[in-house]
């Protein structure tokens, strides 16, 4: 199944978001896509599937829009 994944972690270092389309097996979780994208999750991430907050164990479906964002809290 095709999953479009977008990471905003690259904006933290002055870049643009990374957008990739992955061909993954049925039952793929958010955690597995994050691993494919080689995102450093040591500080966690906001995970959005079709715009809805999700978690690492959420299972993806064909055509899902998947986005990960850094969880920032400073001011």
């Amino acid at each position: 199944m095709k999953i479009q994944a977008k990471s905003f972690f690259t904006v933290l270092s002055g870049g643009r978001p990374t957008i990739k389309v992955f061909d993954m097996p049925e039952g793929t979780t958010a955690e597995e896509v994050i691993r494919e994208m080689k995102i450093d999750m040591s500080d966690g991430a906001i995970i959005l599937i079709n715009g809805r907050p999700s978690n690492e164990k959420s299972v993806l479906r064909e055509g899902d829009d998947f986005a990960v964002m850094p969880p920032v809290s400073a001011a």
Binding site: V11, L12, G14, M69, P70, V72, S73, A74, A75
Partner: peptide, 10 residues
């Protein structure tokens, strides 16, 4: 709500 890290904001 606003939050920052480095030169990045949400």
């Amino acid at each position: 709500t606003g939050a920052l890290r480095g030169d990045y904001g949400q």
